[in-house]
């Protein structure tokens, strides 16, 4: 085991595979993905609905629900293989060193418990010696940080007294409570209006820069990622199809799927042009096409694509899973 902290990246995922063993067959929701996020770095994880983004997050914090199971790969957190941790050690990491913000803000808070209860228990789960008053003060400060007005009063409210956006901010505040080293944020700003979204993004960035927290920001909104992340991983059908520094990938996407995604974002250097839409639908995980999963929807696919493409690194720092990666820049 490497000594934690020093030069190991905060999170390193190698060949992670999480499959769901359903009655209809095995759904390979995550199928061999690798990435790493260093201290203070922000990684954007993008992809269409069902591409396996949330499952990736749950795999990292060890909360994949049956019939799902992590079936392969390694998850190294600060150099430590999480598979070697027992249940109790994993619990101590969760919500303390690794926090996750869930996708649906309406459902993440327990409707019958007050906000203060739900916040203070998060502190006490990891350090029961914190006096109640201190824990409450920390909870209040965390609410203030995410821009909730009159946090003292709001602490005594129940979740249904908040709007969806407010609830998501409470969930974010809970994730921040124990100053984690890694935050997995699953579409945390989708429910928020644009000004609040900007505020949260700004704060997330500030947090990472100042405290060295690593952040995985899951979204399907490329516009959000553009100004936030350092690098980006694009998922398709449980695999990563393209990876690289954010500016390079957005400016010169190599994978036809990434190009399609970018084409369907309004206002990305394409004013006046018709919005492009990727033809077809995301494949069912139970009936993945042979070879490249994107082949049936791809405009440049040929016979070569009938065989499974491997991840290559055509340009230093840029990874792509395609037989015909664009060399970048062409046509843009």
């Amino acid at each position: 085991m490497t000594a934690p902290g020093t030069d190991a990246p905060t999170l390193e995922v190698r060949g992670l595979a999480t499959h769901f063993f359903t009655k209809a067959g095995v759904a390979k929701a995550v199928d061999g993905i690798s990435f790493s996020v260093g201290k203070g770095e922000i990684m954007g994880l993008v992809g269409e609905s069902g591409s396996g983004k949330s499952v990736t997050g749950f795999s990292i914090i060890g909360l994949v629900d049956p019939p799902g199971r992590v079936v392969g790969g390694e998850i190294l957190f600060q150099g430590q293989n999480l598979a070697n941790l027992d249940g109790e050690a994993m619990r101590q990491l969760r919500g303390n060193r690794i926090a996750m913000i869930f996708q649906d803000p309406m459902m993440t808070l327990n409707p019958v418990l007050r906000i203060d209860t739900q916040m203070v228990e998060t502190i006490h789960a990891h350090d029961s010696s914190v006096p109640q008053q201190v824990a409450l003060a920390r909870a209040r400060d965390a609410l203030g940080e995410v821009g909730i007005p009159s946090p003292d009063e709001r602490l005594r409210s129940y979740p249904h007294q908040f709007s969806g956006g407010m609830r998501q901010r409470v969930a974010i505040a809970i994730a921040l409570l124990n100053k984690p080293d890694l935050i997995i944020a699953d579409e945390p700003t989708t429910a928020l209006d644009v000004t609040i979204q900007g505020q949260i993004l700004y704060q997330a960035q500030k947090l990472c820069r100042e405290t060295g927290t690593a952040l995985i920001w899951i979204t399907h909104d490329l516009a959000v990622i553009a100004g936030l992340a350092d690098h980006i991983s694009v998922m398709y059908g449980g695999r990563i199809v393209e990876q690289g520094p954010i500016a390079d990938v957005l400016d010169r996407p190599m994978h036809p799927y990434t190009q399609g995604l970018l084409g369907s974002v309004p206002g990305h250097n394409r004013r006046g042009q018709k919005l492009f839409q990727i033809p077809g639908m995301a494949p069912s995980l139970l009936q993945m096409p042979e070879g490249c999963a994107f082949r049936p929807r791809c405009q440049i696919a040929d016979d070569a694509c009938l065989a499974e493409p491997l991840i290559t690194e055509p340009v230093a720092g840029r990874h792509v899973r395609c037989y015909h990666p664009s060399d970048g820049g062409a046509g843009r």
């Binding site: 101590q92 969760r94 919500g95 869930f102 998060t122 990891h126 809970i174």
Partner: peptide, 14 residues
């Protein structure tokens, strides 16, 4: 299977 129970686990509760 509810999200808030999963979230409670994600918070690291016993």
């Amino acid at each position: 299977h509810l999200d808030y129970v999963k979230f409670a686990r994600a918070k690291g509760l016993r």
